[in-house]
Simulated assay, not measured.
Amino acid sequence: MWTELIGRLYGDAEFAAPAADEAIDRILPLGGVPDDLRELLRQTDGVRAEYGSGLVWSVQEIIEGNAEFRRNPAFAELYAPFDRLLFMADNGGGDQFAYVQARDDRPGGIVVWDHETDEREPVAVSLRDYLERRAASEGDDWYR
């Protein structure tokens, strides 16, 4: 389902081999894996599109990116905490997309984190919504 949807939305999409559940489970300590993201990763371990930008990161990129945001001492001084965010994509220019964990510990939609201002703004209610909105707009800053 996910690869077909993305293939229709993004003519230049590049798919990776599917990720195994054991690999996807390595994301769990970061706050869980939303069901829609798990299903996408089971079909393709990340998607590149739009000149190589990270439309959806691979399992390894999710783990490494989130570890960097949480453990970097310079980030701790510059930005609000990232512990309720699960970064999973980027725009190729520094801004990142993340699931936000709602107060009841369920996914609360997807936000964009602005790397210059530390603002976190809602951009989509689900992974499908994020993919469709991003595809329907032109440019790297479609979410503004």
Rank of each mutant, 00 (worst) to 15 (best):
G93R: 10
L127G: 03
D21T: 10
R120P: 09
S53P: 00
F69Y: 08
A23I: 00
R8W: 03
L9Q: 07
M1R: 05
V47P: 10
D45H: 06
R26Y: 01
L85V: 01
V100P: 00
W57R: 11
G7N: 12
D25W: 00
D141H: 13
G139M: 07
A102T: 10
G11R: 15
L30P: 01
A23T: 01
A17F: 06
R128N: 01
L131G: 08
E121V: 15
D21C: 01
D90I: 02
N72G: 00
T3I: 13
S126P: 04
E132G: 02
G139C: 10
F87S: 09
F15H: 10
A67E: 11
E116M: 12
E22A: 15
L37C: 07
A23H: 06
E119V: 07
G52K: 04
A136Y: 08
R26H: 04
V33M: 14
V33E: 09
D45L: 05
T44G: 07
G52S: 05
R103C: 00
D35H: 09
D12I: 14
Y143M: 00
I62F: 06
E50V: 04
E121M: 14
F15M: 03
H115G: 07
A67C: 01
R70E: 12
D114T: 13
A124W: 04
G139P: 07
L30G: 07
F82R: 05
E77R: 15
E132L: 02
I6W: 09
P18W: 10
I63K: 10
E121F: 13
E121P: 00
E138K: 13
D83F: 05
G31R: 06
Y130F: 15
V100N: 00
G108W: 12
D95F: 03
A20P: 00
Q101L: 15
G11Q: 14
A80P: 12
G52H: 09
Y99D: 08
V100L: 11
R71T: 11
Q96C: 08
Y10Q: 10
D129N: 09
A80V: 04
D129P: 11
D83P: 00
A102W: 01
G32I: 07
F75T: 02
I63N: 03
W113T: 01
R26C: 02
F82M: 13
G54F: 13
E121D: 07
P34F: 08
G109N: 06
E68V: 01
E61Q: 15
A17S: 13
E132C: 04
L5V: 06
V111R: 03
A76S: 13
Q60V: 09
V56I: 15
R84Y: 11
D83T: 13
R103A: 15
G46W: 05
T44K: 05
A23G: 02
A98F: 12
R84F: 05
Q60L: 12
A76Q: 14
L40M: 11
E138C: 04
T117E: 10
I62V: 15
P73H: 04
P73M: 03
R38N: 05
F69H: 09
G7H: 05
E4W: 00
N91H: 02
A20S: 14
R71H: 06
Q96W: 07
L86T: 09
F15D: 09
S53A: 11
E68M: 08
G93T: 12
E138D: 15
Y51S: 11
